[in-house]
Amino acid sequence: MSALEHWNPLTPLAAATFLVVAAYAAPQPAGAIASFAVALGGAWVLGVGRRVSALALAVALPTSALLLTMDALVPGAPGIATHILALGPVRLDVTAVRVAMLIAAQLGAAIAAMGWVVVGVAPRRLTRALAARGLPAWAAYVLVASLEAVPEARRHAVEVMDAQRCRGLNTGGGIVGRVRALLPLAGPLSVSLVSESEERALALDARGFRPRSRRGTLTPIADPRAERVTRALLWWSSAAVLAWRIAVAWRGSAS
């Protein structure tokens, strides 16, 4: 049970956005490091630390390791580099290490921040909160129904595979045979994609669904004033950091 479940889902969304913006647009490397620390620390405070850390590190660590490997193996421009490691052809220079660390911090920060939302907030709740702020019914439907359809997808694939193997389809053997097996397997999936969509569309019509309408809700999501103010601050701060970055880039290209 995460503390996030008591908040309006838009608040963690705004916080995550601010952290991502800070990781990439604020002055570096301070922005990335601070953002990484807050995102990861925050995740533990919010009770989603274990899964969020796993997500963030699973990307940040191998990426930076691979970057270092590349820099060590691929000869850089001679002369300018300050090597911190030199073993025969394997050389690592300080800038390369700095870059790899920065990328790791930025990726870690962004993934951990988005992890707050992805791990801690139920997608349906987030969609409902967005709908309350004017997200059209069609967009909410597409997102929620897609999440719902995914667990079915694997089951359907297995059912089709079972049915066709019962008719003698060989799914092993050489590459040509396996490519050929694609059609009898993908065929029923694509045909039922269309026919099932027809049934779902009719079901939506039957329940009075209108893609552009504003819908009511069985369980409204509370949005206390404190959270609204926090969010406003976070959105404006994100905008300010972005504006600063654009201004710097502008001046840089002008001079």
Binding site: Y141, V144, R200, R207
Partner: peptide, 17 residues
């Protein structure tokens, strides 16, 4: 409709619409 995560949410889809 797949819009409801639970039975009562699914039943609510019509009146919500």
């Amino acid at each position: 409709t797949e819009l409801g995560g639970t039975v009562e949410e699914e039943v609510a889809v019509g009146p919500e619409n």
